[in-house]
């Protein structure tokens, strides 16, 4: 059964619809990411769950009970804000203790739980530091400890890692995932970083302009994108214009000089999406010329000019000889490595 459920939730500011028809079931202990470009309504959705905004339409339920009827202070959710929103006049320990104080946890137990929470995020010994005297990563950990110490039913994270530098962000991602695994808190993470969403979550909700584009596991959304938007947004992809040829039997999918048996249920002009790492150089297939060849250590990146437009190809550096710049090549891929959609506007 769904633990947290959003049922056709919508939010309007004036006449502008910012979130529309948002339905999602989150299982207990699941790690969900809201992924989408800036301004697509991720924060708005999160704030509706948190209770800082009221949905214009739709229902939000936690364990079957209507959450929108509960005051934000009583929802018992843990929230980490993008700016951390730590209390600057309190020490790290006082920050973490605040939620427990509000719950009238006795002093001894409080001290013990604060100590444990700070130790869990790797900040043992920093109890008496004030937030302004801590680094970005440390502040982020205090914010996480402050949200987790109250044993929240759901943990909401609004781009918690976006203020950190690349290396620290990677470290914190691993740590965040480990902590979440250990304590098993149902978690929703808002991010516009596709790598972060993929490496952390059980399922990703890809959003665009207030609407859900796709809900799926990281692998599903990457390999079977439901829309052009999803395939573009999740990593690099090649989109080739093709057609379904019904004049031959069995019907064939044709993109330039690449052909394969057509997938069922499609006809006319289509878009063929293939990830760059799934394309190989072969004897038959799309004919192309290599424009640039970039060596990137563990792989090669080729930018090609194909008969269906520009294409990128990534090849593992497995020690074998690779084509050089200016070489004429044939691009091919296995039919199961592509996704085919009806081409709109053609």
């Amino acid at each position: 059964m769904a633990y947290l459920e959003l049922d056709r939730v919508a939010k309007q500011f004036g006449t502008q619809t910012v979130v529309d028809d948002f339905s999602l079931s989150v299982g207990k202990g699941e790690f969900i990411s809201f992924l989408g470009p800036s301004g697509c309504g991720k924060t708005t959705t999160l704030q509706m769950i948190a209770g800082f905004l009221d949905p214009t339409r739709g229902a939000i339920r936690l364990e079957g009970k209507d959450l929108t009827a509960v005051h934000p202070a009583k929802r018992g959710l843990g929230i980490v804000f993008q700016s951390y929103a730590l209390f600057p006049h309190m020490t790290a320990a006082e920050n973490v203790a605040f939620g427990l104080e509000m719950r009238n946890v006795p002093r001894n137990e409080r001290a013990e739980r604060v100590r444990a929470a700070l130790a869990m995020v790797g900040l043992a010994g920093y109890e008496d530091r004030h937030p302004r005297r801590m680094s970005g990563g440390q502040q982020q950990r205090v914010a996480l400890a402050r949200a987790l110490v109250i044993k929240p039913s759901v943990l909401l994270l609004d781009e918690p890692l976006s203020n950190l530098d690349a290396k620290l962000r990677e470290e914190m991602q691993i740590e965040l995932r480990q902590i979440q695994r250990t304590i098993g808190t149902t978690t929703i993470l808002v991010t516009h970083d596709q790598n972060e969403a993929m490496s952390l979550s059980d399922r990703i909700v890809v959003m665009s302009q207030g609407k859900i584009e796709q809900i799926g596991t990281p692998q599903e959304t990457y390999e079977k994108p439901a829309s052009a938007f999803v395939s573009q947004f999740l990593g690099k992809t090649n989109d080739f214009a093709g057609t379904i040829d019904r004049t031959v039997s069995p019907t064939q999918l044709v993109a330039g000089s690449w052909r394969a048996p057509a997938p069922a249920g499609l006809g006319g002009p289509v878009t063929v999406s293939v990830r760059p790492e799934r394309i190989g150089f072969g004897d038959a297939g799309l004919s192309a010329k290599i424009i640039t060849r970039i060596f990137q250590g563990n792989h090669w990146l080729f930018q090609c000019d194909s008969e269906c437009g520009p294409a990128i190809v990534i090849r593992q550096n497995d020690g074998q000889a690779q084509p050089a710049e200016g070489d004429a090549v044939r691009l091919s891929w296995r039919p199961e490595d592509m996704s085919v959609r009806t081409r709109a506007g053609a």
Partner: peptide
Amino acid sequence: DPQIENAAMSLG
């Protein structure tokens, strides 16, 4: 911080 009151509220 513009979210500071929300942060306090979410903690009860």
